[in-house]
């Protein structure tokens, strides 16, 4: 299943409670105050919606939004 970047961003926004406009490509989870449970919730929803499983160990607070989107899209193509 191919996943679009916008679809991934929509999930991040919903699970973190942030506005889509805040999710600029170069900002990190840490800068956005996206907590570990926000990340867990986002990965749960990504798996639920798209069937894409992302290893949480591939992410850390310094991961950027663009890195996260690229990771999900990469995993969806795998």
């Amino acid at each position: 299943m191919s996943v679009s970047p916008d679809a991934v961003l929509a999930v991040v926004a919903e699970e973190s409670g942030l506005d889509l406009t805040a999710l600029r490509p170069d900002v990190t989870f840490e800068q956005l105050d996206i907590s570990s449970i926000d990340i867990a919730s986002t990965l749960f929803a990504i798996e639920d919606k798209f069937g894409v499983i992302v290893d949480p160990d591939a992410l850390n607070p310094a991961s950027t939004i663009s890195e996260f989107v690229a990771l999900v899209i990469h995993r969806s193509a795998a």
Binding site: I37, A40, S41, F44, A45, E47, D48
Partner: peptide, 8 residues
């Protein structure tokens, strides 16, 4: 699986 926010 259930949503990670289920307990909190």
């Amino acid at each position: 699986k259930v949503h990670p926010q289920t307990i909190p």
